[in-house]
Design a protein around this nucleic acid. Structure first.
Lengths: 201, 201
DNA sequence: CTTATTGTTTTCATCGGTTGAAATTTTGCA
DNA sequence: TGCAAAATTTCAACCGATGAAAACAATAAG
């Protein structure tokens, strides 16, 4: 399970991620070629594709982890907690978690975020990642509140919350310098959507 | 302005669209090559790119038109109309317009919709198109209600509405057979988001 | 320690989307 | 009819992605 083989693979994976992110930040996403990324990690170009499905995939290396975290959070609601409260807590936890992460030598949460929001290809990929996440969360929420929320309502709630936050953050990106300011915009937008949801019951 | 040149270009454009859509529906998006599309429209492969920026672009040939329509709708609000009412009308008009369009010989609104929702590449593209639309609409709404809505609030409102509709429609796609049922789901999700917005003021 | 087995990486060939540049054809107009 | 501008074609090249077989490294068995 933790043989040499396994450890080596993890090392290669990390090397690829760091090589890629570093190059993307330095010279831009489109300008970086797969050959360069692979060279930076000391593997052949072909090997990249046994670790990641595509060039943009490497930027979203921790998506699964985050998704599982979010789902498990929605799956176990404390009794008496309304869907709106639960979703509010989800947003809070996610923002806190994002700020805390520092697993990679190279990585800086803010640099990666700006990279994603800046490069069109990555922004597009982020939209689909976020979309898939929402779909999964809506289903989980529907199961958690099986008696109270239809799938349509659960989807509408999750979609409204994420849609609100997403658009507000981007619309205000020019005015927000620090990560803190961005998180603040996110919280305000979440409040708009959540206040609406609470008024429904 | 309407010389032979212009008319010929329009004809070529339409030929490309029809050739592409037909092939996509017949054999799938990934399976269709640009060479085939071009051949179907009797032009060289290279010429395709002076009409459309990419293979997926051709499927969204009417995006600009729709966007302008939506923006102009949001730009002139009748006095006394709340943002929520205006957005509600926007959704209604958009759904009606979608059902009514039949400009192309080949095209069938439902086939195209299913194509987009089915093929991953097109679904991804749709997400970014929709996203850009929302951004533009949020700005327009903010300008229309300059005194009442901050940019964050306008973005939150538009994002919540579109996010709700989008996710609800997709989450329920399996259960919705006809276009009519899809539109119905959309309306119900819109009501969720709008009811929330109205309760704010 | 050697060998058989299995998993991983490399090499090689190929395909399709996309782009730039130069050559060619078509159209608008004097 | 002939010239200038615009559009199209041809050609070459780049890059991301994929399949297949060869080469290599790690593990387990004898």
């Amino acid at each position: 399970m933790v043989g040499l083989r396994e450890r080596k693979k993890q090392r290669t994976r990390r090397a690829l991620i760091e090589s890629a992110l570093q190059l993307f930040v330095e010279k831009g996403f489109e300008e970086t070629t797969l050959a360069e990324i692979a060279a930076g990690a000391d593997v052949s170009t072909r090997t990249f594709f046994s670790y990641f499905a595509s060039k943009d995939d490497v930027v979203f290396y921790d998506t699964n982890e985050r998704m599982e975290l979010a789902k498990s959070m929605l799956a176990r609601a404390e009794p008496g907690m309304s869907p709106a409260d639960l979703l509010a807590r989800l947003i809070d936890n996610s923002l806190a978690w994002s700020s805390a992460q520092e697993e990679l030598t190279f990585e800086d949460a803010e640099l990666r975020l700006r990279l994603i929001l800046t490069e069109p290809t990555l922004q597009a990929r982020a939209l689909t990642v976020l979309f898939d996440t929402q779909l999964a969360l809506a289903r989980t929420l529907h199961e958690t509140y099986a008696d109270e929320l239809s799938l349509i309502e659960a989807a509408a709630a999750v979609g409204a919350l994420f849609g609100s936050v997403k658009l507000a953050v981007i619309a205000n990106l020019e005015h927000n310098r620090s990560l803190e300011e961005i998180w603040d915009t996110a919280r305000r937008a979440a409040d708009v959507a959540l206040a609406g949801m609470r008024s429904l019951g």
